[in-house]
């Protein structure tokens, strides 16, 4: 299980991350941050699809994305 966190203070809504995500789970949210940008987000229901590849963080010009990579759930466990 991997996940990303998007810093809503830092995100400028350029959406470069939405194009490079291999599982296309990043989208533009309706939330507007203090600078007036519509920030990127991953819907909670899609976060399980995250592969932890860090492509979004690599292309983010504002270092707004942190990537956490978890251990793979064991086969047969409920979390899988």
């Amino acid at each position: 299980m991997s996940r990303i966190t998007v810093s809503e203070e830092r995100c400028k809504g350029c959406l470069l991350c939405t194009q490079v995500c291999p599982v296309t789970i990043i989208r533009q949210s309706e939330r507007i941050n203090q600078n007036g940008y519509k920030v990127a987000e991953v819907p909670a229901e899609d976060m399980a699809k995250c592969t932890g590849c860090a492509s979004c963080a690599t292309i983010c010009p504002d270092v707004a994305i942190e990537v956490w990579r978890g251990k793979k759930p064991k086969p047969g466990s409920k979390a899988a």
Partner: peptide, 17 residues
Amino acid sequence: GEELVFTRPASMVDRAT
């Protein structure tokens, strides 16, 4: 047990550009 695999480099200041 999650591992932070990508974050801001230590020599980069945490400040909006």
